[in-house]
Write a protein that binds this DNA or RNA. Structure first.
Lengths: 229, 229
DNA sequence: CGACTCGTTGAGACAACTCAATGGGTGTGG
DNA sequence: CCACACCCATTGAGTTGTCTCAACGAGTCG
């Protein structure tokens, strides 16, 4: 029952790019398929990185606890994304906690196993480098945004990023996968909860977005991109 | 002529870690040594990544132009750091501009050349992954700081990071390599110029730092770390 | 000795935050 | 199936920390 899923979904992108059939097979066989119910945690911030995950279906939220003990959302990961890749490849503690935001299936590899595969198969290793590079670049972009964009522009950027990363094409617009709250958005944009609520309210009145409980639909991505400057 | 320098300085860290002598030799021979006077630019934001650089001596500043055309400092790179690694390995345009802040020597490899070396030598490739992973992690940390630390704490973090990355042990404390201005600090912390000036002024009165023109000495790193929470 | 860059300080404005109260959804358990 | 608890969201009012703008001071370089 899971084969179809693995083939069609997980065995794409990330580590599997450009692999010949044999190598892809080996990589896939080395992985085990796992399920997490909504709310379950894949790993905790500070844990030794013993497992690498690739999301198959569902949604994973990466959060961080700051010194004051508050949780803040760092980003979401959807189908095809490698969760924990930086920590596993580099072998330092997970810098964030990963929890399933809805029922989620993943492929997982043991750390030793995946490091061995990296050593053995240059293409896999190249894919790992690409993936980590993409992550680094995204973080640089986000960091730059934080310093030189206005609050409103940052919120728009976060929305667009969410749509492209974990969105799907709904009936009326680009819809963000279910459980994304105002609080999540506010933490990703580095803005207070209430300010996000007000901004989104304004945008709804202007027809840019449609809002629901833990749900945001981007009705007009182009104007949002303008707001994001 | 350059061997002594290359050996003692550049052929450390980054790509050279754990290399056997032969491979290190190959890597070193593939590189060419170059000099940049203060103010010269190694590459521009948006350029195709044709060269990878490793700083030998000196200091490189990475800046970004935002849509409004203002330059903002992203970070500094000192001896041993790989400049442009993410872009070169991943082959997307440089996300920032690199300029020499003081006279700087670098090792440089052509993009095609370094990609070929990566393919051929797994240890080099592993080192590349480590380096990019470190970069990604630093960016995640900085991003998290931006969202959940106070302005003062962020300035302290920036100072400590500068000290650890490009600092040296001066006579009275950890000194930041010469040409780091208040403006640089403010941009890295995501704070206005004036606010940084005021905060640093306070800290000088409290004996935490000593200030000069484009110069900051951390007299009491432990208390700074407390401020950075 | 100018010209330039870098830094400091003050005063005022405003955007975003904090705090508090209210209102809808959603899901669970009796 | 209703009632309750809980989570998510909205809105208002008041405060404040940071930014903006302007003027001045001081170090550095040619």
């Amino acid at each position: 029952m899971n084969q179809a899923l693995s083939r069609s979904n997980s065995a794409q992108g990330a580590l599997f790019t450009d692999l010949d059939g044999v190598t892809a097979e080996i990589l896939l066989n080395a992985a085990s398929q796992r399920q997490f119910p909504a709310g379950a945690t894949l790993f905790h911030q500070g844990d030794a990185p013993s497992q690498l995950f690739q999301v198959g279906t569902g949604l994973v939220r990466l959060t961080r606890v700051n010194p004051e003990g508050e949780q803040t959302t760092l980003r979401f990961m959807g189908p095809g994304d490698l969760v924990g890749c930086v920590a596993v490849f580099r072998q330092f503690p997970f810098p964030a906690t990963a929890t399933a935001s809805k029922p989620t299936t993943v492929l997982s590899w043991g750390a030793a196993q995946i490091l061995d595969l990296l050593r053995r198969y240059p293409t896999v290793s190249a894919n790992a480098l690409d993936t980590v590079g993409d992550r680094a670049r995204e973080m640089v972009d986000r960091l730059a945004e934080m310093t030189d964009k206005s609050v409103e522009a940052r919120v728009a950027s976060v929305l667009l990023r969410l749509v492209s990363q974990v969105g799907r094409n709904g009936s009326t617009g680009l819809e963000i996968g279910k459980p994304v709250t105002r609080k999540d958005v506010s933490e990703m944009a580095g803005v207070s909860y209430f300010t996000v609520s007000r901004i989104l309210g304004d945008w709804q009145r202007q027809g840019l977005v449609r809002l629901g409980r833990a749900r945001i639909v981007a009705l007009d991505p182009r104007r949002l991109a303008q707001v994001a400057t």
